[in-house]
Design a protein around this nucleic acid. Structure first.
Lengths: 255, 255
DNA sequence: TCCCGGCAGTGGTCCGACCACTAGAATACA
DNA sequence: TGTATTCTAGTGGTCGGACCACTGCCGGGA
């Protein structure tokens, strides 16, 4: 909803947005060099850079020093690093992220069971296999773990939900890496993933949802434990009652 | 997640991030003027602006021309306008947004039933009252509708889920305004909201979830209808099987 | 008292120069 | 000939300093 401002930033954003919507710009495509593009748009290079920076911050563009600027490829991610920033600002808790993830992924699993395609089932199966094969290598295991969940998200047929999940997981992923080495019971984890796979494969949404939920609950307590051992224990609490709503001002958004 | 790059942008981001985490910067606070701040950080004003632009794009900062730069207030929103941009890029469909909303809000309602506080129940009640009072004024009604759902999100005690919902709804909100005038059966809508309220109030998560789901399904079909009448009918489909990977063109006119 | 013009402060835009990085071409070496 | 090294063109990143545009406020005048 970028406004039609006179602002140079928005002029750039809208221009590129139009190019994308008209199909003239596809993921992976490259936009002209800054100097040239700026000349074409009749604006200064600085302003152009502001606009590109805006798009890059939102994950729409991918700027590579010394190479060029491209339309972002790969799975869309909604707030890239904004989650951790906003988290620091509003005091997001670890259990809240897990809760969000649990809700999203459970539903994702159910949808995948309904809409998944053969090809995606195959991909899931392969990742599960790899997980069994790397139960002794936590770092490697984690990679396939992430991929498995990502395939499920794709199979759900809803890229928006997939993008939201990607946002949450990438935030969680950082914490995860710190404790991954301490992982154990990966065999058990793999078993659970296999169960998830089977439920989805047999197109049983209810089963898929519940197994996924079980898996994530287990994963959470496991990570909490690992974190505690590592002493990296940040702010992790339980939803005792509710988070303190210190907000009283309405803060409506009218304009 | 922002790396410790030598990049000026990240230096600024990290610096501000630190100020936020250390509590030295609260929502609503103002940061020093650009010229002064740049001098203090030993970087050029241009670089500082790049960093601030990055934070502003993510909704962490709020820059006001001629006034100053502030830490964002109000309910956190994850990807602000990125959703519509990414949507154009990856061909998000309207039904996908509704589906995402349905899943999020249903769960939000259930959580609110479990964790909501008296004060929030009161706020919900008031909004429902206002809705009944404005059944003849669609625009006004919509405002209270939005507020009602926002209170539920707050009551869920999970600001992350609330932020995700805020992102989806704000994207949907734009479409909504175009067709709001055609709304009818607002009485019926209000009734449904009252039911939701009652379920939450009586701390019945299951009931809350199911009523919310019913409400949103109804809202979706209503809006589809209105949009169709208005001829503004963009790309609205049903989840036939699954969305194609990434080569679907919509490219309708949006603004 | 009220209106309005000016003023100071702050973000927005522009220019033009130079730095830093990358990839590939040209060159040197074995 | 094949491989390693160096050079170079192209591209984004940073700089600083000038000037524009907006906002809020204060003081003078009706």
């Amino acid at each position: 909803m970028p406004k039609n401002d006179t602002h140079m930033t928005m002029r750039v954003v809208n221009h590129i947005r139009t190019m994308i919507e008209s199909g003239g710009l596809q993921p992976g495509d490259r936009i002209p060099p800054e100097r040239e593009f700026a000349r074409k748009l009749r604006i200064s290079r600085a302003s152009l850079r502001t606009g590109i920076g805006y798009l890059a911050a939102m994950g729409v563009m991918d700027v590579r020093h010394g190479v060029g600027t491209f339309v972002a490829e790969g799975p869309p991610e909604i707030g890239k690093s904004s989650l951790s920033l906003l988290g620091a600002l509003h005091g997001f808790q670890s259990w809240q992220m897990f809760e969000a993830r649990r809700i999203l992924e459970s539903e994702l699993a159910a949808l995948a069971a309904e809409r998944g395609k053969e090809q995606q089932f195959t991909a899931m199966s392969e990742e599960v296999t790899e997980m069994y094969a790397t139960v002794d290598n936590p770092m490697e295991y984690l990679i396939h773990d992430v991929r498995f969940h990502r395939v499920i998200a794709q199979a759900s047929g809803n890229p928006i939900l997939a993008a939201l999940m990607e946002t949450i997981t990438s935030a969680l992923y950082d914490e995860r890496r710190k404790t991954a080495e301490r992982s154990r019971d990966l065999k058990q984890s793999a078993d659970l993933h296999r169960e998830i796979y089977r439920a989805i494969r047999s197109r049983n949404p209810h089963e898929a949802r519940s197994v996924m939920e079980r898996h994530l609950a287990m994963a959470q307590s496991a990570q909490d434990l690992e974190a505690a051992e590592a002493g990296t224990n940040g702010h992790v609490g339980k939803p005792q009652t509710a988070s303190a709503p210190k907000r009283s001002r309405a803060a409506e958004k009218q304009d």
